[in-house]
Design a binder for these strands. Structure first.
Lengths: 343, 343
DNA sequence: TTGTATGCGTTATCAC
DNA sequence: GTGATAACGCATACAA
């Protein structure tokens, strides 16, 4: 199949008995074209159902008006929201999006990056896979003259454009809120510490405890409690301690927090009176559990828009060299029933 | 910025004192190349950090190894899952994905399609916007020799490759199940009937009632109850009837079903004993509401994989002309507490 | 304002 | 097996 070949500017030129370059100029709305010929070209282009071949155009111009996006999973709420935000802002500027998912695997992440370099994208937006440790492929992006923007899960040591959440501050506020609600012995479910987003959340937790003179207890800090299942497992362990926690901060995700809630419910432990729970991400379901779950909103769609607009701003003043810049978005603590036991 | 220009096959050719065509052959692993030179080329390509320019390659080859995807919203669960499925299958075949969202607007959908045609994608995968009525832009895809695959929300009259859910059957089973549970006066919350997915679900509902000799009551069929808010509104109306329904089938979405549940809970109506509720889509939250919500799983990730593989199969035997084909995936009824009042 | 000529980087088609 | 050359479709520098 792939039927008849498409009409090109040459076809239009031939039909109108003018040069192909004139057609090109007319189609690209160039300044130095006769109004009459321009109209004529546009008219016949429409008649012949002409579609510009962007492959050729981009090759000639040396840019693709395309942004490549690499995320761990397309179908995770946070990431699909960020992508939607990027698409929204990019579309307005006439840019396209090529999307890849790394499946949290560094090996696939590297392949994705290479594909995008091959595709000659103008910019690569990436949020690192959980097991991403070596960042040569990111350096490779820069070496190929492609703008690199990291978001959320970033490699700190690489000086690039970054858009992140202020995880530490958000975490600090969440724990402070729980302390203000009178919770003692607040446990932390933490994520892989090689991802800075998780180490920052831990720092916020520790800082809040310090500020309010609460002891830091190792037995209340559980590693790698990322999923609902692991959150549940961690909770069973915590609640079987001689002195169980009064609250649990599932800093990894709302799914983890859900695991906490389910175990607590199953054990007949009342939330929030006997146990406080706070999650992270403001997943849709946190609003509808019983009780509803306190969590942190990351403004993910806005984050995507910010990423795209950051790129366009940098492009706008391309005369000046791009200097590394970090935009930090302040997440919002959403207080719900699961941590509200006072007024 | 866009710093130094990249290395091309000419750079490699020059360094090795051979012809560019030989380099090209070596890189594309062509059959008729000396093993020694091939190795040499690969080695220096690596040294010079060579990356193929796919823009040029694709232009020359007349194909882009790219699939364009148009969906109403990237960040809706169903669609992000389908996209993830498409990406998964495409990646394995070395294909890239360009993603656009129509925002449920036909006008934007048309622009997206045109962009994808310009980008010379090999295939366009689309799920129609709710207000999409005229399908000339779809015909345009075909006219440009691009393979068109519709999924979920399809234009029936257009003879293309299609991947759909058997909505009618799923709906029939859901209503039959509710009848078997002893529910009488089962109400239907329906979506825009210009989208076939919704009219099919209505047909399934009607067929089930007929089969079990239940009367069809217009007052129990509510139009346009797509969102949680509209589902809630519809529920308030239904429950204030002289003879309120015994169950509500929110055929539009789980969000609608959630609206039903919330209103019922607020009014002190017990689910499932006094009111049965069934949603559609198997959103994550349906599992964790109280009570959990009976719903229908659409196998959305699998659906995406099916779409992509359908394309690759058709490409595999490109000698034979593509004949319109529809793959219908059977959704699965997930029975949960909200409709279980018998054993 | 318009036409001519050239090149973007690759691959395919010839010769040799 | 290898090299020279043309062509993919478009945009631009330059000449007219």
């Amino acid at each position: 199949m792939q039927s008849k070949k498409r009409t090109t500017i040459y076809d239009i030129a031939q039909k109108l008995n003018i040069a192909a370059s004139s057609v090109s100029r007319a189609l690209s709305n160039s300044s130095h074209v006769n109004e009459a010929t321009k109209k004529l070209v546009l008219k016949t282009a429409d008649e012949l159902n002409y579609k510009r071949n962007n492959l050729a155009s981009n090759l000639r111009k040396g840019q693709s008006k395309t942004i490549g996006v690499v995320v761990p999973f397309i179908n995770q709420n946070f990431f699909s929201n960020v992508i939607a935000g990027i698409e929204d802002a990019s579309y307005q500027k006439g840019y396209n999006l090529i999307i890849c998912q790394s499946n949290e695997l560094e090996s696939k992440e590297i392949k994705c990056v290479n594909t995008l370099i091959n595709q000659h994208v103008d910019c690569i937006v990436i949020s690192l896979a959980a097991d991403s440790s070596d960042h040569r492929h990111l350096q490779n992006i820069i070496d190929n003259g492609i703008q690199l923007i990291q978001f959320d899960r970033v490699a700190d040591e690489l000086e690039t454009l970054k858009v992140i959440n202020d995880n530490e501050q958000a975490s600090f506020e969440a724990v402070s809120h729980m302390i203000a609600q009178g919770y003692k012995r607040i446990a932390l479910l933490e994520g892989p510490q090689n991802l800075h987003i998780f180490s920052q959340r831990k720092t916020g937790y520790l800082n809040a405890l310090k500020k309010f003179d609460m002891p830091i207890l190792d037995e209340l800090i559980i590693e790698n409690a990322w999923t609902k299942e692991l959150g549940a497992k961690a909770t069973r362990k915590l609640l079987s301690l001689a002195r169980p926690p009064g609250a649990i901060f599932a800093s990894t995700s709302d799914f983890s927090a859900l695991g906490v809630l389910e175990v607590a419910s199953a054990m007949g432990i009342k939330v929030p009176s006997e146990l406080g729970i706070c999650g992270y991400s403001n997943e849709a379901f946190t609003e509808i559990t019983s009780p509803s779950i306190t969590t942190i909103d990351q403004f993910s769609v806005y984050m995507g828009q910010t990423v795209a607009n950051l790129y366009f701003q940098e492009m706008a003043n391309k005369d000046t060299e791009v200097v590394p810049k970090t935009i930090s978005i302040k997440p919002k603590l959403i207080v719900r029933s699961s941590t509200l036991r006072k007024g």
